[in-house]
């Protein structure tokens, strides 16, 4: 390969990459820079008043402040409500539908069908169940939108339902990779169904379960529509997740707080990503 060919290849590579790089620069890295900037400068409430440096101390004040911590805690509660239940139900459905039966495809299609619903759709769907005026279950106290102790749970339930299709599909795909001989061997060794499940199946599908956990955690961080449409953040701010709070901080004078909180959210996403990377590394070891 001659030098000219090399140069041509470079040019081609960058030409192919250019559109993506431009998008990333403008809509991922520029905003990261701007978030940092906004978090360090307080904008004036006066027309043309400009901005004033407030420094890292101000960022820290936000990140250690009640509003951020409370939003984080509500977000974590939302994760606690959605992630384990989501995985458990996905496993349940997948275990039930992973068998040779006539017509099993129909059931598999039904179980995966909630993939078709968006967060907004599933939120509207759940209004028929939990809305305090018209919901079928409006008098069920542990789902009540009227109480700060239960409203988040109602919103979380709609997410669990919406994610059922995805969790089912992923667990089912993982189950299908479990070699049948292995199960038969375990059966012959006298393992009962329960032991077979926990000793053989779970370890083999655990990468998929971890992946699922990560996906659900990321979805949880991104939860917005179900809050806006089902609870409106209330009652008593009990369902204001971090993202929900951030979106309310877009006025000029709020930008410093909003940007600081966004960086906090970035930090949390980053932590999850670290866990994910660790996981990938471990899975490589598994694979070998």
């Amino acid at each position: 390969m001659g030098k000219r060919r090399n140069v041509r290849q470079w040019a081609l590579a960058y030409a192919l990459l250019l559109p993506s790089l431009v998008v990333f620069a403008v809509f991922a890295y520029l905003p990261l820079y701007r978030l940092v900037h906004f978090s360090l400068y307080q904008q004036s409430s006066r027309l043309g008043g400009g901005e004033r440096y407030v420094g890292f101390g101000a960022v820290w004040d936000v990140l250690s402040g009640e509003r951020f911590l409370q939003g984080t805690w509500i977000t974590i509660k939302f994760l606690i409500f959605t992630v384990p239940a989501g995985i458990a139900l996905g496993v349940l459905l997948a275990m039930a539908a992973h068998r040779r039966l006539k017509g099993i495809k129909i059931f598999q299609t039904i179980f995966s069908s909630t993939v078709a619903s968006s967060v907004a759709v599933s939120s509207v769907v759940f209004l028929t169940l939990v809305n305090e005026q018209i919901g079928l279950l409006r008098n069920v106290s542990w789902l009540s939108l009227k109480s700060p102790n239960s409203a988040l749970f109602a919103a979380a339930l709609s997410s669990v339902w919406q994610n059922l299709g995805l969790t089912f599909v992923i667990v089912l795909a993982a189950l299908q990779t479990v070699p049948e001989e292995l199960l038969e061997a375990a059966h012959l060794d006298g393992y009962g169904a329960v032991r077979r499940f926990f000793r053989v199946v779970v370890p083999l599908i655990s990468p998929a379960l971890f992946f699922l956990a990560i996906v659900l955690v990321v979805y949880g961080f991104q939860a917005y529509a179900q809050i806006e449409l089902i609870t409106g953040g209330g009652p008593l701010r009990s369902t204001e997740t971090l993202l929900y709070r951030i979106t309310k901080l877009q006025k000029n004078t709020d930008l410093q707080v909003g940007a600081s909180m966004s960086l906090g959210l970035f930090g949390l996403t980053f932590l999850v990503a670290l866990v994910q990377f660790r996981l990938l590394e471990r899975r490589v070891t598994y694979g070998n």
Binding site: Y33, V36, H37, L40, Y41, G50, E51, R52, Y53
Partner: peptide, 12 residues
Amino acid sequence: LLAASCGGGDDT
């Protein structure tokens, strides 16, 4: 972080 904290901006 560095760029943003040093970066001017129309300070008043």
